[in-house]
């Protein structure tokens, strides 16, 4: 029997994986987080308000699962940043190489941001959540969403050489 709620979650697995990676930066941990999130979501499906966006609800569950993991995993040692490990270069054209290197440098710049800024940046810029949805997902005021988002972008602009001028 096809369960549409489960299918909806499966369709959002790439979004969950992306958000998980942006929080924990380790692929194997990200997979665990995605699985925990899917399990909790299915178990708690009656708590989901269909008037709201499923992804925002799932992101919130994932974020809580990440907090739980950090809280409990007292033995966790140094984290290995996935972007520290160079990947084998596929053969591609000079232009493709240029684009790829540029996007790699963007990803590297994102990983240097503090986690709270990364989460906000990811939810707004990658997943397209509104400020209000982001605030609710992370359990912080909307003003905090905006200040973190603005700081994250200023830091990225500095690292990537995008001149945004001196604002307020």
């Amino acid at each position: 029997m096809q369960d549409s709620f489960v299918e909806d979650i499966v369709a959002l697995l790439p979004n969950l994986k992306r958000f998980a990676l942006s929080l924990c930066r380790r692929p194997e941990v990200a997979d665990d987080l995605v699985q925990i999130t899917a399990e909790r979501a299915i178990r708690a499906r009656h708590h989901f308000d269909p008037a709201t966006r499923l992804e925002a609800w799932l992101f919130r569950i994932l974020r809580n699962a990440w907090i739980d993991m950090l809280r409990r995993d007292a033995t966790r040692g140094e984290t290995v940043d996935i972007h520290d490990t160079p990947q084998a270069d596929p053969v591609d054209s000079a232009a493709q190489t240029h684009d790829r290197l540029m996007l790699q440098s963007v990803r590297a710049a994102i990983t240097t941001l503090p986690e709270d800024q990364r989460a906000v940046l990811h939810l707004v810029c990658v997943e397209g959540l509104s400020y209000a949805e982001t605030a609710q997902t992370l359990g912080i005021p909307q003003g905090t969403v905006m200040s973190r988002l603005s700081r994250a972008r200023r830091a990225l602009g500095d690292k990537l050489g995008i001149k945004g001028g001196v604002g307020r």
């Binding site: 990947q87 996007l103 990811h122 972008r153 995008i162």
Partner: peptide, 19 residues
Amino acid sequence: LFTQTADLVKEAVLADPET
């Protein structure tokens, strides 16, 4: 600054093979 960082972040994350 705001439009470019948004575009770059989205493109970079979506193109990340790890995701």
